[in-house]
Design a protein around this nucleic acid. Sequence first.
DNA 1: TATGAATGAGCCTTCATTCAT
DNA 2: TATGAATGAAGGCTCATTCAT
Lengths: 222, 222, 222, 222
Amino acid sequence: MNVNAPLVPGPKWTRKPQARPDEVLEAALDVFAANGFAATRMDDIAKAAGLSKAAIYLYFPSKDDVFKALVEQRIGVVQSHFDAAAKDQKHDPLAGLQRAIRLWANSFHDLRLAALPRIILAEALRFPELADFYHRTVIERTQASLIELFQAGIDKGLFRPVEPLVAARALMSPLMFEILRRQAFPAHIPPLSMDELVDSIFDLFLKGLAMPEVENHSGVAP
Amino acid sequence: MNVNAPLVPGPKWTRKPQARPDEVLEAALDVFAANGFAATRMDDIAKAAGLSKAAIYLYFPSKDDVFKALVEQRIGVVQSHFDAAAKDQKHDPLAGLQRAIRLWANSFHDLRLAALPRIILAEALRFPELADFYHRTVIERTQASLIELFQAGIDKGLFRPVEPLVAARALMSPLMFEILRRQAFPAHIPPLSMDELVDSIFDLFLKGLAMPEVENHSGVAP
Amino acid sequence: MNVNAPLVPGPKWTRKPQARPDEVLEAALDVFAANGFAATRMDDIAKAAGLSKAAIYLYFPSKDDVFKALVEQRIGVVQSHFDAAAKDQKHDPLAGLQRAIRLWANSFHDLRLAALPRIILAEALRFPELADFYHRTVIERTQASLIELFQAGIDKGLFRPVEPLVAARALMSPLMFEILRRQAFPAHIPPLSMDELVDSIFDLFLKGLAMPEVENHSGVAP
Amino acid sequence: MNVNAPLVPGPKWTRKPQARPDEVLEAALDVFAANGFAATRMDDIAKAAGLSKAAIYLYFPSKDDVFKALVEQRIGVVQSHFDAAAKDQKHDPLAGLQRAIRLWANSFHDLRLAALPRIILAEALRFPELADFYHRTVIERTQASLIELFQAGIDKGLFRPVEPLVAARALMSPLMFEILRRQAFPAHIPPLSMDELVDSIFDLFLKGLAMPEVENHSGVAP
DNA sequence: TATGAATGAGCCTTCATTCAT
DNA sequence: TATGAATGAAGGCTCATTCAT
């Protein structure tokens, strides 16, 4: 199912029934990812799409709308993978967690997708509705999935009874941040691959930094 | 190019010995924090500083340089607090860590400061030199301090022998990310104060999510 | 840089295949001739061309390039006339010389053309490449043509064996200078028409100022 | 006698009695010669004069006036040399002519002086009064001197009875033009020194290009 | 006399957007 | 559906000029 199906006209940006709009967004993703929003010119998008600048306006009423449509179209994809993976395995929260995180991290192997959070971060001030949309669609749903898993783990006695939201952020942030870092500082290639980082973080996140002995048999507790 | 070079050439962005440059930077911080880099006009900064646009150019040769000067002025402060706190207490890595993190987090109580990392992450593509500068000045030094602390903790047998860089990122990212989140999604006020988050994250980071029993003597549970 | 590059890239200053660029140059000639380079604003050119300022940039990437294109377009014409006339008649150097000089002088009946050498003179410091271009395209070629003619005349025993380059300059300079003078001091209208001046100069140049008797058979005087 | 004597306040640009104005003009000559009028900034002049920009305005009410004062101060010098040399020797017009021309050419060994005619020619449109001043002070007086000499030569039977004005221009233009050329095309060093050129031109100017036999007694030659 | 500080006006250039075809 | 052509509205930067000190 084409997200841009003519049956469901986009809320704001009107489009014709052909595939063109998707081609435009495909091109726009390239250019926005490479240059960011402000630095991207309609000319760039047009050239990347093999169209004239004016033609873009047949499908999207403004540059803002191209951007919004793009985010709406793409952001969901990343999130849905995660969502599915997480919900599948509530019976084994730990495995579900690991699988979801790995899938989610993999989806950013397309670096252009990794650019979207960065751009949203940058442009959130100028596109509050878009930021809201992103928060609702991606962040909240991801958190919800994670929280469910954490709660299940806690209920099963696998996890310590921590605040699930804090845990969710503690787990996701290092990975999310790594994605931003790689874009902002491409010159400073990180020492670990993304996959390795995922596992390292996951392990550290589960076991903690502190030496277990220190925590455990001080059996002398009050 | 710059005919109005000051008598005492600054490191890169020239300035006169008076207080004006600082006033300009103060104003610039306001405006950049509110609008980001690209969307900020020199006129805005000038107006905020109570000066004419041309006057700004008496102190800084370009918009870029205003931004760089601002980063150099402000980021260093944040970073140095951290640096000092961390280095102070190498004998007690755990306390040092906690103190450094808290101080560092506190420095962002001025939300305008929190805008700087956001802008750098967002605009790094357009300002590679700036991103490099930030990486060198802030990230690398912060990491170095943290790594020292972690290594000291590991050497003392307080911490598990993890990769210090990964640990550093695991600890800092949730906090850094929280700072970004609060700017991008001000509508979604987080449930915890920054201080609470710091402590929660710190605790979770140390002890890990997993139930200790599960990890240590499997099966001996009640 | 120039996103609006034309389908057929011009030699240096890009242009669209239509007549517009020529119209712009026509207008630019008017304005540059009247105001010089520095004092001419893009708005002036645009207005003279019946276009908006931005439209000029569809055809020329900068003010400099408008000027360069104008020079390239117009200067060559003047020079080529001269060139052809000179080369045509190597068998009769004297007639060829006279014809070439006259044609060349006539081409400046369009006073706007006369402005170009003036502007180049004025702006040579700011446009060294342009000055070079002018020197190569116009001065050197004109000199080459003249030198050929002079050498032919010398070889044929018509001219005294002088340094051809010196002769070329001795002949051209008074005319070139007259063109500059008429622009700089329009209030001081010269007593002779350009055509008359050409003939007078030519005659004086050939026969010299000195009384022939004085030089030849001294003592035969009355 | 200082031209800028306080006794005779300049017609438009007021000045204080010290030597400062002359120092400013000295500096201005450097900068105008190097950059032309439009491209010279008051800052440049100030820096060259070792003063602040504002101080310049104590002596000259505007950039235009600095330029005017400079031209008025300097242009006369060149001309007066010429003038004197020419008038001295009316009894021997040929020697007077040669001496005057040589002196005049020598005065441009200071290349900054050579810049003045160039700038006037270039900027005459923007400074009509100045152009008039130059014409009256320099051109007309130089021409008058030359014409006197020529007329004397003609009267004495040394020169052919040509139009003295035309002759004056025929003689001066190649030299004047050479001065302009050297500024505009410094890359194309001329093959002759200025002194050599003066003599060559002078010789050619006197004897003419044509073979004497051809002109005088056709066919009677050996 | 001298200047540091400041500015108004202006100019080149860019770019999202429009429209006739 | 598509585009070539055009533009209004900025925005960064410059510079001659002013003025309080």
